[in-house]
């Protein structure tokens, strides 16, 4: 068990975004969270990566209670994540993005002043090839297309030292060809022993990719299991097609 969340609650001004959500992520597996829009998937991601403080509940990562950590402290422990709405660093080059992701010494001011640029060129090349981002390393964030930014976001999450990779809708808004190649990248990463947690709105994308699925609706996990179990679960269809009352009964 690499990550486990227990009884997470979070409301925004009276609206319950997360309403007692619990799930676990197994090591070296691809775990998917699916659910309709507004079911609290991204909020849950933000809670896990500490961008949002939950009202209550605990989060454990690698067996340690990380509930009270700050966002960057958890990231340093080995959680990498991407964003659905990628912005990146508009005025930095691709190389600089990857250097920042890889470096763990760049925050030290004094040792940095009189040292030249660092960054493992070999490792940068590997990551670029893995995600298939075919752009000169000197291209600025500003000059990338949406799909390219998606890939760069994935690349920096992979390049950053991590033990868990969290992907927020990795294929939202990308074309079918890129969709397939992202699926291949994720399979490749998994075959290397990576633990991956991904959110996806689109059920078809996850079904033949993930090992285990959690279905979220109205801030709760309403079903879990292997993809084939989920596919035949009437509650899940309910949640997607509306009438989520039926769905919550299934828990």
């Amino acid at each position: 068990m690499i990550l486990s969340c227990k009884d997470i609650y979070k409301s925004f001004g009276g609206i319950k975004a997360i309403d007692g959500c619990s799930f676990t992520v197994a090591e070296k597996k691809i775990t998917g969270i699916i659910g309709p829009n507004g079911s609290g998937k991204t909020t849950m991601f933000n809670v896990i990566s500490k961008l949002i403080k939950p009202d209550s509940g605990t989060i454990e990562f690698k067996g340690q209670d990380v509930t009270g950590l700050k966002d960057y402290e958890l990231a340093k422990m080995g959680v990498s994540r991407t964003f659905q709405d990628v912005k990146l660093f508009q005025n930095l080059t691709i190389r600089e993005h990857l250097q920042i992701a890889m470096s763990d010494t760049d925050e030290k001011l004094l040792s940095n002043i009189f040292r030249g640029k660092e960054g493992d060129a070999q490792k940068i090349k590997e990551v670029m090839e893995l995600v298939g981002l075919d752009k000169p390393l000197d291209t600025y964030g500003n000059d990338l297309s949406y799909g390219q930014r998606k890939l760069l976001d994935l690349a920096i999450a992979i390049a950053k030292p991590h033990t868990l990779l969290m992907l927020d809708e990795p294929v939202a808004g990308v074309n079918p060809r890129l969709r397939d190649s992202i699926k291949d990248i994720l399979r490749e990463l998994n075959s290397r022993g990576e633990s991956i947690l991904l959110i996806e709105h689109d059920m078809n994308f996850v079904m033949d990719l993930v090992d285990h699925i959690f279905v979220m609706d109205a801030g709760k996990v309403i079903a879990e299991g292997a993809p084939e179990e989920i596919q035949n679960n009437p509650c899940v269809l309910e949640a997607y097609l509306g009438g989520s009352e039926e769905g919550t009964k299934c828990l």
Partner: peptide, 20 residues
């Protein structure tokens, strides 16, 4: 320096920098 690049990254997108 790499430190300076972090400063620029902070200006462009602090949230993204923190999750790194």
């Amino acid at each position: 320096s790499p430190f300076g690049k972090l400063l620029e990254a902070n200006r462009d997108n602090a949230v993204c920098l923190r999750v790194l």
